[in-house]
């Protein structure tokens, strides 16, 4: 279980998460919806140990997280993988796709070409594309590489933060199928964050709500006045 207990996060004076508790059990796809700005991505970054909360506790399969970001112990950090909406912001533009997928293994000091090849095939990336750099491929192709990278170290928990929002329906269906197959094979827990209710209805086994005192209300959308 990936367990967040009474997490509080503030940006300046603004409280974005106010004592929010959330459990991600293994083997399930938990859908998290809600308007933009309600703290979904902030929670995602706390769960992935990339953001230190002002208060609260995070544990991974019973182990308390005591360091954050680079200070998080590697064996905990690699248990949780995070995918973002915009793959271009999540990769080093100088690396080839093959190197992007290989990054986690390289960082562990155990490069493994055949594993990289197998992951690339799993996300539908073939030969020539693997030698390209990010600016030479489409968003969909780059997100495929990011998903392969996220799965490289067999995370027990996968957090998909608007993973397919920028992508066409076919690429979305493909990536979701890859994530589901990974879940079926490994029993990983998946947090599917999206503002697309239709997608969550189809994808998630269960749904979670973010309720906390700090959640801002939805933006008003006044109707346009005639000129």
């Amino acid at each position: 279980m990936l367990r967040a207990h009474e997490i509080t996060v503030r940006y300046g004076r603004r409280t974005v998460l106010d004592r929010v508790s959330f459990d991600l059990p293994p083997g399930q796809v938990v859908g998290l919806g809600g308007p933009s700005g309600c703290g979904k991505s902030t929670l995602a970054r706390v769960l992935a140990m990339m953001l230190r909360p002002a208060g609260g506790a995070l544990s991974v399969d019973g182990a308390q997280v005591r360091g954050w970001r680079q200070r998080a112990p590697r064996e905990l950090r690699t248990r949780v993988a995070l995918l973002y909406q915009q793959p271009r912001l999540a990769v080093d533009p100088k690396l080839r796709l093959r190197e992007i997928i290989a990054e986690p293994l390289a960082a562990m000091g155990r490069p493994d070409e055949s594993r990289v090849g197998a992951l690339a095939a799993e996300v539908g990336l073939t030969g020539d594309l693997l030698t390209r750099r990010p600016h030479e491929v489409s968003d969909g192709q780059l997100q495929r590489a990011c998903l392969a990278r996220a799965l490289t170290l067999d995370p027990g928990y996968l957090i998909c933060d608007e993973m397919t929002t920028m992508l066409d329906a076919s690429t979305q269906a493909y990536l979701v199928a890859v994530v589901n197959a990974y879940r079926d094979r490994t029993g990983a827990g998946v947090l599917a964050i999206s503002h697309d209710e239709v997608l969550l209805d189809r994808w998630a086994d269960t749904r979670a709500e973010l309720t906390g005192a700090g959640s801002p209300p939805g933006m008003p959308s006044p109707s346009p006045a005639p000129l």
């Binding site: 329906a169 076919s170 690429t171 979305q172 979701v176 239709v198 997608l199 209805d201």
Partner: peptide
Amino acid sequence: AQPDRAFVP
């Protein structure tokens, strides 16, 4: 491929 249809890529 849409999630409210077959959802097949």
